[in-house]
Design a protein around this nucleic acid. Structure first.
Ligand SMILES: [Mn+2]
Ligand SMILES: [Mn+2]
Ligand SMILES: [Zn+2]
Ligand SMILES: [Zn+2]
Lengths: 138, 138
DNA sequence: ACAGGAAGCGCAATGGTATTGCAAACTAGT
DNA sequence: ACTAGTTTGCAATACCATTGCGCTTCCTGT
């Protein structure tokens, strides 16, 4: 099991340090995207900055992607495999639940083509839908 | 002219104080959305907190809307008229230029319907396109 | 005109997040 | 075991957002 996690790191050219194994293990257990603070609280006595740099490294190497859901804190979630270092390919919709305040990836829901006025060139799109998630609907 | 600005405020049930007149005047002169810091620098010797509360009041009353463009600082822009207190109706696309770092409203470009998985209910959508704006394309 | 009271303003203070510098600890290759 | 490069922990910094509070200003009823 730890070996499995280690392979995931080495495949992305990330040195599998003890801290990074813990971080990836924690990420794998999540059902929604987490913030740095979530991670810090989840991995008890751990330095926030080290965790911050672990996430940054993961993102840089295409293992996780960051999500700006408007909550003020950047969220992180594992990529869908096809991402490479410095090049993310998982441009999907993200959902923020106003009830449980969890942010989820909707990898099946690609972002539609957005028409723009003449002279505007799109390079990146951030689409975040807010509402009530499937767990909070009653 | 000042009378005109004053009317805009009173129509939205906002007390037209000296500070608020200045803020609205400044907003009317902008061609793109501005941050609180932009406003503070634009209106020379003025208290940041007072400006902050002016913008909050304007937003609450449906005169401006706030934009989270991922830059870290909330941007503000005038609404398209049909907005009411506590109820904004200008759900349009926003564009962030990676070159000039200006954020623009694209009021002609409504946000398309985003399909969601079963059980998810959409209440709000934030769509921000990043790229190169018409002024920066060469 | 006067007394209250509400609204607005300026300043201080707080809390949260992101980011960098630096020295100590650690790893890997020789 | 030694050295070079990487990783870590802690301090420090920089913003941004938000609230508390006393003072001023403006409005209103008497
Ligand atoms: Mn995602
Ligand atoms: Mn807008
Ligand atoms: Zn939920
Ligand atoms: Zn531009």
């Amino acid at each position: 099991m730890t070996e499995n996690i280690e392979v995931m790191l080495t495949e992305k050219n990330i040195n599998p340090t003890a801290m990074r194994l813990l971080v990836l293990d924690f990420l794998l257990k999540q059902s929604s995207a987490i913030s740095l603070t979530d991670l810090e609280k989840g991995l008890d006595p751990s330095d926030r900055i080290t965790l911050y740099r672990a996430l940054k490294k993961f993102e840089e190497k295409g293992l996780v992607h960051s999500i700006d859901d408007g909550s003020g804190a950047t969220k992180y979630a594992l990529c869908e495999n096809n991402c490479e270092a410095g090049h993310h390919h998982d441009l999907h919709v993200h959902f923020f639940c106003n009830t449980c305040r969890e942010t989820s990836c909707l990898p099946k829901h690609h972002i539609p083509q957005i028409p723009l006025p003449d002279g505007f060139k799109s390079e990146e799109v951030n689409l975040i839908v807010k509402g009530v998630c499937n767990k909070c609907v009653h």
